[in-house]
Design a protein around this nucleic acid. Sequence first.
DNA 1: CTGAAAGCGCTAACAA
DNA 2: TTGTTAGCGCTTTCAG
Lengths: 347, 347
Amino acid sequence: MGSSPGTRRPTIAAVAQAAGVSVSAVSHVFNGRTNISPETAQRIRDAADALNWRPNVASRRVSRSLGGPAGGAVGNSIGLVVTQSPETFRRDPFFIRLIAGLTGPLGELGWSLSLTVVEPQDEEQVYRQWWTEQRVDGFLLVDLRTKDPRIPLLRSLSATAVALGPTPAASAVPGVTLDDGAGLEEVLAHLAGLGHRRIARVTSSPGLAHSRRRDRALTAAARQRDLTVRSLAWNEDAADPVAGLLAARGDVSALVLDSEALATRVIAHAPELGVRVPADLSVLSWEDSWVSELVRPRLTALSAPVEDSARTAVDLLRRMVHGEKPSSVVVPGRRLVVRESTGPAPA
Amino acid sequence: MGSSPGTRRPTIAAVAQAAGVSVSAVSHVFNGRTNISPETAQRIRDAADALNWRPNVASRRVSRSLGGPAGGAVGNSIGLVVTQSPETFRRDPFFIRLIAGLTGPLGELGWSLSLTVVEPQDEEQVYRQWWTEQRVDGFLLVDLRTKDPRIPLLRSLSATAVALGPTPAASAVPGVTLDDGAGLEEVLAHLAGLGHRRIARVTSSPGLAHSRRRDRALTAAARQRDLTVRSLAWNEDAADPVAGLLAARGDVSALVLDSEALATRVIAHAPELGVRVPADLSVLSWEDSWVSELVRPRLTALSAPVEDSARTAVDLLRRMVHGEKPSSVVVPGRRLVVRESTGPAPA
DNA sequence: CTGAAAGCGCTAACAA
DNA sequence: TTGTTAGCGCTTTCAG
């Protein structure tokens, strides 16, 4: 064990001694200084390998807090704090896609991802703690809310952060936003082409910023096509949320749902309630993943380049940690994947 | 930004000054020493809050490497290195359940989870790096393989680790194992009761230790009930893996699949290939999650208490980090959830 | 109950 | 090209 007595882990001094050089020579090699002869450098590296030694990240961070090249930037870890019930976190494929997309680019940088899932009441506490304890070099914000309290919080902490989604222009948090416009047009063209005239957007979290944005964008775009768009709320607490939704839909012939978790539940359960998809009702999801391919009928979905967003976010974070002040980025590539859950509007 | 010039973060000295005490007084308060008067302690805490200060984890780790109470143990972070293709990682609900189950107990400890997904060839490198750099205090090993190379690797690094699954008794890595016996009996009783006589177990990763274990256990238990069990391999590279599997199944009337990812694909795709579930073929998954409830027919599955395992693993890790040498733990609670994908054997 | 001081492993001036 | 050394923020011993 690392903590068993007598088993002290090797230090830079041990490596220096093994290689027959000074401590600073070792340090230089591991910090990309070019002032060490190749042979010596190799000898140092060999000694380090033999001892299984690598610079201790903690010590490194402490000493670099002095005046390193990047003003003390180290770049060890970025924090992802997901404020959702564990249930939502588990069920929404978006999160696992995001995580998977993040670890690649982070690994290339030698950074790691510190992840946690918290209930809303613990959110502020975790951001505060992780930042003030200097556990992380920055945060990736997801599920931006309207007037998101994390923006002023992070500002007051002088914390580094990047958001997935648009942020207020004045904030110090650049956002990685998806270009929704094209996808939205595709959705409407698709539905209108199938003869739908009345559609509804369904969300389970009206407090999320993207929800309002989508409402507005969809409504505006629909007007130009002479479609009407209603807004429907998903009530998770109902005995049967799908039944509730179907009952509330009125004369709507197509449903656009904010998440796959919602859309797939409608797909699976609607037939059991006597509503055939897509014969009676078309269903479309604003997010896409393997789950949409799994249900029957397969779900027509707006797919987002989550991996691209993740990579872009990591890059922004990297630059911020190194002292730059990058501005927001728009990632293109949303597109409609037509599968089986949308069909001609019923007569 | 944390790195902008002039914005140095407050240190313990600043807090001490603000509270009008010495540096060590502040340290004592934040380390649970009892030799500070309640009033003074409160004053110190207030000063820290006012300055948004918390002990820097990096400095803490460096100084504690000296001779702290737990022999230098700090307990900041545990590493979860998932050796899977991003695709498998995304599709298998087990991982997100595990992650969700881990963050709760870790949060209670004030620890965080460092997560990454790596390809097999990078695995060793990541374990080496994270441990020698002292990024993590320990690892949680998942997807144990037969003769898993990580066990000797971690041993050679003197790294702390706990595994999900049984580990060799001689290794220094305690395991959190599921009590499969009861669930297995349930599976066989259920299938036998439905008249099945020939069943097959399907795996996509025969190299995983649990795969062999399940094969053996199922075969042994089946013999006593006069059932025959075959072993079938899932070939992901085939043009249509489900079709390949169905073609290879011979006279088997029930399939037990190692993961939900596999089982749900069979469920969804088999009808399109003319095989009705469960009328022609019963399908049973060795793992369970919301996905099993989503597909139609709903999937009969062996559910595992992943959250319990996660909590147990965190507890073992905590104890190891504090110098104990706990032994393996068996977590009970696997049980069969009968849904719709299993039915009477065809005549 | 409090404070002064040594030292953790490492980095980066600066000197040689 | 290499070595010496001060110092990062914190903990903890030990003396007041």
